[in-house]
């Protein structure tokens, strides 16, 4: 079944490959070395970067290169049922996959024994919080002036019953008709390499391959938005950050 023939109607009326309305902005946390907000529909993530700075505890220092440390957290009131504040296993896993998603584009060789800390907080959640967090974090790293060989953009492709769609909402994530929902968060570099991918649900190999191609197109659109937000923050006439 190819997507073109599908007459599937999404709950919010979006086209199958249409992202939610996106807002992106850098410089949202003045104290940080770099920071960003990424909003996709009703999902809002902010990220702040501190560093490079000396790694503590000292036994975690790596004399050969600098390290990235990511910390993903949902605010207790970001979802309908309050989340107990603090680290749970889900947040620990997402922190780690966020690090894996971003590390391939960072050039930290010149920062031995140092660490770059990225803190991500989800303020409001309507699915796709890890992908929004990765998008915000990538922008915050660039905003902090960390040397990068490219950008990372992230999106969740979904399969609702038999149809592939882009950027699931919570309502779509809870879709229960036919084959139900499949959630496939994917992160890519701007030159189309996959740095992160996960999946929950039910999907065949061929359609999963199509999903990857669909993510590529969506990530390219997100990349343009991230790039624009970063450019908007630079004072082109007088130099430096606005």
């Amino acid at each position: 079944m190819t997507n073109k023939k599908s007459d599937f109607v999404r709950p919010d009326g979006r086209k199958l490959d249409e992202l939610r309305p996106i807002e992106a902005k850098v410089g949202v946390v003045p104290n940080a070395d770099g920071s960003a907000m990424y909003k996709s529909g009703d999902t809002v993530a902010i990220a702040a970067v501190y560093g490079p700075k000396k790694m503590h505890p000292q036994h975690n220092q790596d004399p050969s290169k600098g390290q990235l440390r990511c910390d993903y957290n949902m605010l207790s009131f970001s979802v309908t049922e309050r989340i107990r504040p603090g680290k749970n296993r889900r947040a620990m896993e997402i922190s780690e996959i966020t690090k894996w998603a971003l590390e391939p584009v960072l050039l930290l060789d010149k920062y031995p024994n140092q660490v770059v800390d990225v803190f991500i907080n989800i303020i409001q959640a309507d699915a796709g919080t890890r992908t929004a967090g990765i998008n915000a974090a990538a922008m915050a790293l660039a905003h902090a002036g960390i040397p990068m060989r490219g950008m990372v953009s992230s999106v969740a492709v979904g399969k609702l019953d038999k149809t592939l769609v882009v950027d699931l909402t919570k309502e779509e994530e809870d879709y229960h008709e036919g084959e139900g929902p499949t959630d496939i968060p994917i992160s890519m570099t701007d030159d189309g390499k996959i740095t992160h991918m996960q999946l929950d649900g039910k999907i065949g190999v061929t359609q999963l391959q199509e999903a990857v191609d669909l993510a590529k197109g969506a990530c390219a659109k997100i990349y343009e938005i991230q790039k624009k937000a970063l450019k908007d923050a630079i004072d082109l006439e007088n130099g430096g950050k606005k």
Binding site: I194, Q198, G201, D213
Partner: peptide, 19 residues
């Protein structure tokens, strides 16, 4: 033949064709 979960681990980018 139905994939029910996937997890890519570690900081190594993959080409689309590799995936």
């Amino acid at each position: 033949g139905i994939i029910s979960s996937l997890q890519k681990s570690n900081s190594r980018a993959l080409e689309i064709h590799e995936m």
